[in-house]
């Protein structure tokens, strides 16, 4: 069973994503802060990561960089989610190694397709 690590500080959003993923038969874990997320990825590597960009301690970009900087985290698909992005943010994230980029608010039906596409892309690699 595929495991997803959700790094998200907002409880409601976390619950929403968790619900949607579990509906689609994914196993989920979560981290409420950036540092905790990084630690979890590196200690028990998930199959993919759902990463919120606005986090209370270190931001999503930093989290992504730290994951990618490590051998363990190098190839794990990371799907960034942000409620509102500025121009250039997407490019920055993709440049830092982000696999996919989903804008909030998420569409419960479409989001699974987007995630599957992202994971598939990574696995092909």
């Amino acid at each position: 069973m595929t495991t997803a690590l959700i790094i998200e500080d907002n409880e409601n959003n976390l619950e929403l994503i968790r619900f949607i993923l579990e509906q689609a038969d994914y196993k989920t874990r979560f981290a409420m802060t950036g540092l905790e997320g990084v630690q979890q990825v590196l200690s028990i590597p998930p199959d993919f990561v759902i990463l919120d960009i606005q986090l209370p301690d270190i931001n999503g970009l930093e989290v992504l960089k730290r994951i990618r900087a490590n051998l363990i985290g190098k190839d794990i698909p990371v799907i960034a989610m942000t409620s509102y992005a500025m121009s250039g943010d997407k490019e920055k994230l993709l440049a830092a190694g982000c696999t996919a980029y989903i804008e909030k608010p998420i569409d419960p039906v479409l989001v699974i397709g987007q995630i599957q596409e992202a994971i598939g892309k990574e696995s092909v690699k």
């Binding site: 907002n10 409601n12 959003n13 409620s83 608010p105």
Partner: peptide, 8 residues
């Protein structure tokens, strides 16, 4: 953030 979860 809250709106996103409401909509979601």
């Amino acid at each position: 953030t809250p709106l996103n979860s409401i909509i979601g």
